[in-house]
Write a protein that binds this DNA or RNA. Sequence first.
DNA 1: TCTGGGGTCCTAGGACCC
DNA 2: TCTGGGGTCCTAGGACCC
Length: 426
Amino acid sequence: MSFIQCTKKIALVDCNSFYVSCERLFNPKIRKKPVVVLSNNDGCIISRSNEAKALGIKMGEPYFKAKEIILKNNVQVFSSNYSLYGDLSRRVMRTLKRFNVDIEIYSIDEAFLDMTNFSDKEVEEVGKEIRSTILQWTGIPTSIGIAQTKTLSKIANHIAKKKKTGVTSLIGLENIDPILEKVEINDVWGVGRQLTKFYNKNGIYNAKQLKNKSNTWIKKNSNVLGSRTAMELRGVPCINLEKTPSKRKSCVVSRSFGKRVEKLQEMKEAVANYSLNASEKIRSESLNAKSITIFIRTSPFQSRFGYYSNSKTIDFPIATDNSIEIVKTAIEGLESIFKNGYRYQKAGIILTGLSNSNEGENLFSSEKDKKIGNLMRSIDKTNYRYGRATLSLASAGIQKRWNMKREYSSKIDTADFYSLPKIKIT
DNA sequence: TCTGGGGTCCTAGGACCC
DNA sequence: TCTGGGGTCCTAGGACCC
């Protein structure tokens, strides 16, 4: 038996230190300097410039732990600014779409491209052209890895990150084992902490070893995901390019608090706010939620005050996108799990069982429901125009003492006219 | 003092059915 | 003494990703 193997060519375009690059765009002074961007609440370091990496600052490290290195080396620090990053991401993706190839937007700073239609020889040159176009049009530096499968293109991308040209193609190479041998197993896409531990225990330390491990062993000792990764390392595509984004299945809004919350009233305000945001989000995507989960917890890192974590899931009678109903239900859920005497660090809500809201006026939709629908739409429009929370519910509160910390924000927002960077003409 | 947020998918185990 | 077996569906929790 024989089969025709159609060799694919998949490119992974990845923005270099994306959030840092976004901040640098409007701040030339920090171009060659070490820079880091912090997560919400200024908690952890989630983006680092090469200079910051060289200082030994680690990905995901809590900010307070890295503070000493940061101060000593005059590292520039920024609170995250997702409105800015989202806008620049859209610009990068729009630029990519101009190249007329199938594209899957994989995350805020990554996209897979199907370059199968280009010849083995062309592919690297096209990659370079894409890279320089993005740089020129958006100012964002990228790296591009090209290979036969998504997993291999991730590896090619790692290599490209260290090259000056920023582009690496593994297409047409007879034997990539010497390359895979240098890739640590935990750097392989799909291999996280637990799998690394397991593979190490079984003598697998790099990508080549996993690739050459027998199928039967992998199938017996891991799950479908594990064998898929191994196949992909062998050049057999198992993970398809998703051209059309699939509808989301859940919607989470959760935050750590800027200050610990101890009172039910404050917690209610926070949960009401998260519920409002989530409702607005699903309405903007024409979705209804079947149920809602509310969760609260104290800090898992500070057990001296006692640890408490709980959640409550409630089904709606009918799938809904109505803010008022969602907030009301969230508060109900919160009251059922809230316990006095704890210093809460985080809360959130999850809307699940999402379905298209236009799928059928259901039997119960009444005049009243329609009126509520119209009300929701006009709230959304007003908030879109004048900023979120122009119109809100009283339960969402005004003081918001629990609001998150953002001490180091650049306050630039290319998606908001009043926050555009200003140029002084003299 | 200070440790992110938003997703998806898989699996094990329980409930239930015939 | 022996105490069915096989199937589906659902959910919670874990692992992974960026």
